[in-house]
């Protein structure tokens, strides 16, 4: 009995030794490989799924040679009721084209229904969050846009010079991807309008915005953003903009569906102009639908 037990222990020991020697020999080759490979710095990708969180720009730009076409709608207020199908009868549109000149610099043009506004914009990735030997904790992008009001002159709107039609927004977009699911953005904005109605009206406004996304599935995330005014609003008592939405990704398309109290889709409008009241149901349903076209293929190809 005793000898049988000890012999079975010997077998176990022998097997264990065999397994160890096999795995250590095999593992040895991969280990040597790992030691010989120098770790590289890799930029963190897909902090956000699209170039916008809801309204505000994210840190992302279209890749080099990519034409990014966005068609966006904001419908009427939910509070407009069943007669207008809760706003669906009353759509405003933005069509935009952005092009990635490099992986870090993009230019774009857009046209908005609201005030027949044209946009010319540029976006640069200044710093990129990365991992590896030269790890960096956050990304910084810069966005500048010039907006041109295209309305005919009227009693309401009477630009004397062409420059009166212009307004500008500059933004620094600081983002960090905390993990695979969670990303945050901090966006200080500066808004300037050339034209004001009365002499006392302000030309400039500073804001600080926050945004984020939480990924619920591989192709699905919840996004939100809020912009707080640091200097007095252009119109007294104007509410700041708050938006909540989802991103749904299907191959070359990203669908962003959202609820927002800001109806305008260009920066001056959703940052500086009065937004609706969430409490009163002055909320707009809307979507951004983006499609990418690779015009120039990767140069390494």
């Amino acid at each position: 009995m005793r000898t049988q037990e000890s012999s079975s222990w010997q077998v176990v020991l022998l097997l264990t030794l065999l397994v160890c020697s096999v795995s250590s020999r095999g593992q040895g080759l991969l280990d040597i490989l790992n030691e010989s490979v120098e770790p590289v710095t890799v930029p963190v990708s897909a902090t956000f799924k699209d170039t916008r969180i809801v309204n505000v720009q994210s840190s992302e730009t279209p890749g080099s040679g990519v034409l990014h076409f966005v068609i966006a709608h904001r419908f009427g207020t939910l509070s407009s009721g069943a007669y207008d199908l809760w706003g669906l009868d009353n759509a405003q549109m933005r069509m935009g084209l952005d092009y990635g000149l490099t992986d870090r610099f993009a230019i774009g043009v857009a046209r908005n229904t609201y005030q027949k506004t044209y946009e010319v914009n540029a976006k640069a990735r200044v710093l990129r969050q990365s991992t590896g030997p030269k790890a960096f904790p956050f990304s910084l992008s810069w966005y500048s846009v010039m907006m041109v009001n295209g309305l005919k002159a009227s009693q309401e709107y009477s630009p004397y010079y062409f420059t009166h039609r212009l307004s500008y927004v500059h933004q620094a977009i600081l983002t960090r991807k905390f993990n695979e699911r969670l990303s945050f953005a901090l966006v200080p904005s500066f808004v300037h309008r050339n034209f004001v109605k009365a002499t006392g009206d302000k030309h400039d406004m500073f804001l600080i915005g926050g945004g984020g996304r939480y990924k619920l599935g591989p192709r699905f995330s919840i996004n939100a953003e809020y912009h707080h005014r640091l200097t007095p609003a252009f119109a007294p008592g104007a509410l700041p903009s708050l938006s909540i939405g989802v991103d749904i990704e299907t191959g070359g398309h990203v669908f962003q569906l959202h609820m927002t109290n800001a109806r305008g889709m260009f920066e001056r409008s959703f940052l500086a102009e009065p937004a609706g009241s969430w409490a009163n149901g002055d909320i707009y349903f809307g979507f951004n639908l983006s499609r990418v076209f690779q015009l120039k293929t990767n140069s390494e190809w």
């Binding site: 020999r25 095999g26 490989l33 040679g65 690779q294």
Partner: peptide
């Protein structure tokens, strides 16, 4: 006996979006 190893992030694709996906 031999071993080969690759880093998945080193793969480069014709289209930037393919690489991201």
């Amino acid at each position: 006996s031999f071993a080969f190893q690759v880093k998945m992030r080193s793969f480069s694709f014709e289209k930037a979006l393919m690489q991201e996906h």
